[in-house]
Design a binder for these strands. Structure first.
Length: 929
RNA sequence: GCGAGGGUAGCCAAGUGGUCAAAGGCGUCUGACUCAAGAUCAGAUCACGAAGGUGUUCGCGGGUUCGACUCCCUCCCCUCGCACCA
């Protein structure tokens, strides 16, 4: 029989019963509401996604068994531009897109043909997600599912944004973005063909006046303006004269295009050749009259295409100047040093170039040299006294302000690396958007609210707190609207769509009413309706008041949510955004209570990536190994916040363990034999596993919980089997039945299919999913039994280790127990924190004194022995005073069976072998002959 | 570069001042079962050892301490994030 099919494929009636069980309804029970970031369904689920939803599912199942009313909902985030790009690529038969969707995601050809409409992509994959999530055994309440472009959800988003606007958090502003002039839209990382690492840099334009107009030179180091000795122009290039915001400038043609995207009013007046500018004199108040010199390294496509020259501090400038001077020109120009750097003289660039032995401007080492000089000056440089004497870092800011305030300088944005190319093959430029809407995350009061809320929240693991706080501080205004994509339009400016990260911040509230709200026609869902449901502001004329009352109650039942789960890469945006939005809209008592941050997934040691084909689809994993195996492997692969590695070779062994577990449970449930002396030990240990496993689950330590509740129990059972001589089937002790009942329920959240089937065999078809979670039975805790078995196990280990070493053929094993007086010393040593006066104290006892050196040796031996025992074991040992003799007599048969030797147990003094004297409390002497 | 986290035996990984030669898993080896292989079960797996022991290890190098995988410092390496994108 193929056990996997019956156990893990999920019989139809079980799936039906689960579906009903997981539909959450407000009740008298305490609630537990957890949410996971909903998926963007643009492709098939892989095992990495699997873990994101399985870990919360295990938590959800745990709390459901703890008799809480659990809500675990799911929806689909279909807002944004990516699917539009995908559909375009499929429409134009882009081979890599076709391969990805047809071969890797295995989309049928007839379905793929419909993907030219982006809606069909998200619809198809939403269904796929739901199907695979269900197969994975996720206890999701599907009655509340929705997509983010449904009309009712859009109404909800409109309500949210009205509130944000009214609170003053949505503002219009100017902001530099990467912009594709052909798509007429900002471009994100994934829309780039080339240049995805390019950063937008802020150049200060220093305006030099000339007869022809201003000549703007871009610089990242405005503080060096005092050391400018000349300008550089490319004599091979044609420049343009432009009128910009009323001034006349000379810039490269490329620069004119760029500046026109940066919020300036520009008119081209004519052209002017680079060579024409050579030797003209320009002026700036901070450096005086200087000439324009020719240089081939000047790139017209870099900033303005004109460069100011600071030969003392810029290697390129120095070498270009030196080249000219070697030809006998401009010999009157000397570098002006203005920054003092440790390890350099007056002109660091000059020294660096000369000592590196660079001979011309095209030497590739110049780039590296420039980097070195720049970072040295930035990190440790100080302006010379004449120029203010401040550190470069500070002077840079100050000079920049002086330049903009008094010398007409403005900012120009430019990429640090080029080219940057859009997927449409067009060049991407920096554009300053001025009619863009922003969420003002820079607002200090808002930030403060979020900080305060974070303090009240439970963050798991605690280490992420620093990152959250830092993100809040670092966040700047967020451009929250787009021209293209799917989504909801901004209610007061419908030209704009609300951007995906911004429409997914308070939807956890929407889940609470997502099922009921469907009963109201979406056209009636005015902001007033949501004001009542979420904020309790009742107004006249609301539709269906009874239903709204019910929704209001349901919202208040579930909210605030208990925990939100998401991968750690969302800390710097989504996870923090959602706190901002909650703070802006909801009253304090409804604000989020906790977050759990996940690690990332690897596949066989390499990063999982759909585009590189390094993925293992969740559905394939479920088909190959079974849902329970996938679940248990993912839980066991690390704590939720740790990165994990999916490895097929390890997964196969997980499957074996589950099969073994199922067989064990079945045989335990059949057991009906007489009780065994080791039974109390087994049941006592189980209480410890229940306590530790429960505590781990409560702290989201699912891996630790799996260890306690599965592997540690299994290890106990192994020892139990060994002790009882593997009594199997019906003859095994009947306590195994209750043992199995506890064990089964402990493991049920992790491997529900297996446990559900096993549970129903003996529980009249009731579901383990709603069975009560095991509680610690204090009456079953038996410290003496645990101490005794621990001693026995340690002794067995010692015997094994001796047998391994000795080369004689053993025939007889003797165990000699330590005398009573050694116990006395043992407990005195155990209870004495430092043993300086200990020997004195012990010697006050006459009988001890008489033993002389023997006493002293025993104190030393006990001290080192105690040192090797766990502290809590020692304290129970001192209290319990178990009878070692009785223990070993009872275990005599076991020892004889284990080692196939005759075993004799001696009380202290009964054995006269010299080794018998080495017996210590909790460490009997072992004599093998 | 900036911010956050991390480097533990063949591999993955637990461990935050003495319970540590260091849990657990994988791999490997040995035994049992088997005609055999596989599966399963038991044991071993840093080195040395004819008695339960000893020696040397936890990224590199220093320091604090009677004692450090654990605390402090320098350095090296890895992962994640750095914004208009899910």
């Amino acid at each position: 029989m193929d056990t996997r099919k019956t156990r893990e494929a999920g019989p139809l009636n079980l799936m039906q019963r689960w579906k009903e069980t997981f539909t959450a309804k407000p009740s008298d029970k305490e609630k537990f509401y957890l949410t996971v970031a909903y998926p963007y369904p643009s492709g098939a689920m892989h095992v990495g996604h699997g873990r994101t939803y399985i870990v919360p599912d295990v938590i959800a199942r745990f709390w459901r068994m703890r008799e809480k009313e659990v809500l675990y909902p799911m929806a689909f985030h279909v807002t944004g531009a990516p699917v539009i790009g995908i559909s375009k690529r499929i429409a134009r038969q882009d081979q890599s897109a076709i391969t990805l969707y047809r071969d890797l995601y295995r989309v049928p050809d007839d379905v793929l043909a419909t993907f030219t409409d982006p809606i069909n992509i998200v619809t198809y994959f939403s269904r796929e997600y739901q199907r695979v999530m269900t197969a994975a055994g996720l206890s999701i309440d599907w009655s509340r599912t929705f997509t983010t472009i449904e009309p009712a959800y859009s109404k909800f988003i409109e309500w949210q944004w009205d509130h944000l606007k009214n609170a003053g958090y949505v503002v219009k502003g100017a902001h530099p973005v990467r912009y594709c002039t052909q798509c007429d839209n900002p471009v994100g990382d994934h829309d780039l063909l080339e240049g995805d690492t390019a950063q937008i840099q802020q150049f200060t334009l220093v305006l030099f006046s000339s007869e022809e107009g201003y000549i703007p030179c871009a610089t990242l180091r405005p503080e060096t303006v005092y050391g400018v000795t000349n300008l550089w122009v490319n004599p091979e290039t044609e420049y343009v004269r432009i009128e910009i915001d009323g001034q006349i400038w000379i810039v490269s043609r490329e620069a004119m295009g760029k500046l026109s995207l940066q919020d300036h009013d520009i008119k081209e007046l004519g052209t002017i050749h680079g060579s024409y500018l050579v030797d003209r004199v320009v002026h700036h108040d901070l450096c005086g009259d200087i000439p324009i010199l020719p240089a081939s390294f000047v790139d017209p496509d870099m900033a303005t295409g004109l460069v100011m020259s600071v030969p003392a501090h810029a290697p390129y400038d120095y070498i270009a100047l030196r080249d000219l001077q070697q030809k006998g020109k401009y010999s009157t120009i000397t570098p002006v040093g203005l920054i003092q750097v440790d390890g350099f003289g007056t002109a660091p660039a000059v020294e660096a170039v000369e000592s590196a032995g660079i001979t011309d401007q095209n030497d590739p080492r110049l780039l590296e040299l420039t980097q070195q000089v720049y970072s040295a000056e930035h990190a440790t440089g100080k302006m010379r006294e004449k120029y203010g004497g401040k550190p470069v870092k500070i002077a840079r800011e100050e000079v920049s302000i002086i330049l903009t305030d008094r010398h007409g300088s403005i900012i120009m944005y430019e990429f640090d690396t080029r080219p940057v190319v859009c997927r449409c093959n067009n060049r991407v430029f920096v554009r300053v958007l001025h009619d863009q809407w922003f969420l003002s995350y820079s607002n200090p009061q808002w930030k403060e609210q979020v900080h305060e809320q974070l303090q009240r929240m439970d963050l798991v693991p605690p280490e992420v707190r620093a990152e959250f706080d830092r993100t809040v501080d670092w966040l700047n205004d967020w451009a929250c609207t787009r021209r293209i994509g799917l989504g909801t339009r901004l209610p007061w400016d419908p030209e704009w769509l609300i951007e995906p990260l911004s429409d997914s911040t308070v939807y956890m509230a929407y889940y609470t009413i997502a099922a009921g709200i469907k009963k109201i026609d979406h056209t009636l869902l005015t902001p007033a309706v949501f004001d009542y449901i979420f904020l309790g502001k009742k107004q006249e004329g609301l539709p269906n008041p009874e239903l709204l009352d019910e929704l209001r109650r349901e919202f208040l039942y579930w909210y605030p949510y208990n925990y939100r789960f998401s991968a750690k890469d969302l800390i710097s945006n989504h996870l923090t955004f959602q706190i901002f939005h909650h703070c802006a809209i909801f009253p304090r008592e409804l604000l989020p209570q906790g977050m759990v941050v996940f690690g990332m997934g690897l596949l066989n040691g390499a990063k999982m990536s759909s585009s590189k084909g390094n993925v293992y689809l969740l559905e394939d994993a479920i088909n190959d190994f079974g849902a329970d195996t996938v679940r248990m492997f993912l839980i066991g692969s690390g704590e939720p916040w740790q990165d994990f590695d999916w490895r097929n070779d390890l997964v196969a062994s997980t499957k074996k363990q589950i099969d073994k577990f199922a067989a064990t449970i079945q045989s335990c449930m059949e057991a009906d034999g007489p009780v065994h002396p080791v039974d109390p030990w087994l049941m006592s240990r189980m209480q410890d596993h229940v306590a530790k496993g429960t505590a781990a689950m409560e702290r989201f330590q699912t891996r630790q919980a799996l260890y306690e509740m599965f592997y540690a129990v299994e290890a106990d059972l192994r020892w139990y089997r060994r002790r009882t001589g593997s009594i199997q089937g019906k003859d095994a002790s009947k306590i195994l039945g209750s043992f199995a009942s506890v064990w089964l329920r402990l493991v049920a959240p992790i491997i529900p299919y297996t446990c559900e089937e096993l549970y129903q065999e003996t529980n009249e078809g009731r579901l383990v999913s709603t069975a009560p979670w095991p509680v610690v039975d204090t009456s079953a805790i038996c410290t003496d039994a645990e101490l005794g078995e621990e001693l026995l196990a340690r002794t067995v280990e010692d015997i094994e280790s001796i047998l391994r070493i000795i080369k004689i053929k053993p025939e007889e094993l003797s165990i000699c127990i330590a005398p009573e007086w050694k116990w006395k010393i043992f407990s005195q040593v155990a209870q004495s924190p430092q043993n300086k006066t200990l020997i004195k104290e012990i010697m006050q006892d006459e009988t001890m004194k008489q033993r002389g050196k023997e006493t002293i040796d025993t104190v030393k031996q006990c001290t080192s022995h105690l040192h090797r025992l766990p502290p809590d074991l020692v304290s129970s040992l001192v209290q319990s005073r178990l009878s070692e003799y009785d223990l070993f007599i009872a275990a005599k048969e076991f020892l004889e069976r284990e080692f196939s030797l005759t075993v004799t147990v001696y009380k202290a003094g009964e054995c006269h072998h010299s080794k018998a004297q080495s017996a210590l409390p909790y460490k009997p002497a072992i004599i093998i002959m």
